[in-house]
Design a protein around this nucleic acid. Sequence first.
DNA 1: AAGTTATATAACATATCCGTTAAATGAATA
DNA 2: TATTCATTTAACGGATATGTTATATAACTT
Lengths: 107, 107
Amino acid sequence: MNMLDHTFNALADPTRRAILARLAQGEATVGELAKPFAISQPAISRHLKVLEKASLISNERQGKHRRCRLRPEALDSAATWLEFHRRFWTGSLDRLDAHLKSEKKPR
Amino acid sequence: MNMLDHTFNALADPTRRAILARLAQGEATVGELAKPFAISQPAISRHLKVLEKASLISNERQGKHRRCRLRPEALDSAATWLEFHRRFWTGSLDRLDAHLKSEKKPR
DNA sequence: AAGTTATATAACATATCCGTTAAATGAATA
DNA sequence: TATTCATTTAACGGATATGTTATATAACTT
């Protein structure tokens, strides 16, 4: 698994995206993150592990709590990949489109 | 599963990203797409199904072949999500940073 | 030291993923 | 019509994902 795999995989789950959205409002402990969800706390802990492995979050022990925060740089490679391909694909299709149009004219 | 789930999930696999990269060079049949990979052709067919479900590609029967092409719009929602969060996260952290700095000054 | 709180880990069930090979389908060709 | 080619679908197996509950750990509190 490379970095993009981990990032896209982590982002493919709505619970994990919701956790990220929550963290975008500010740091939170595991318990605070788990509270709004209908699933158990261990399940959240494992989602956090996935986000951690993707470097999307980090955490730091604070007494008996563990405080989580975003690592925004982790989005960079995914955003770069997406932007590049989005432009490249569209560019290719534009050229194809132009090509097809220029083919049609002569007839 | 919503659209982002499908998109991110589809992009999380390196074989599928390679297929997309290949299609960015131009349309191709299933067989042409399968050839460079070490895995069986039915396996490729199923990757193509995943990409199709994510609306990342479409295909059209042409005689006994099936020709695949990219659907670049499918990247839009994912790119939008990523860009938004990337900026938002960074913005939040900048504000946090500024906040922490402004807290320190008075002392 | 004992109890409480926050979180992680273990053990388990179920579902999905991803690959395989074999058989089915659909269309072109002999 | 029978054969061949391109692709899909079926049936299977093993690995991974995601949830559960029960138990362990780690740090505060009494």
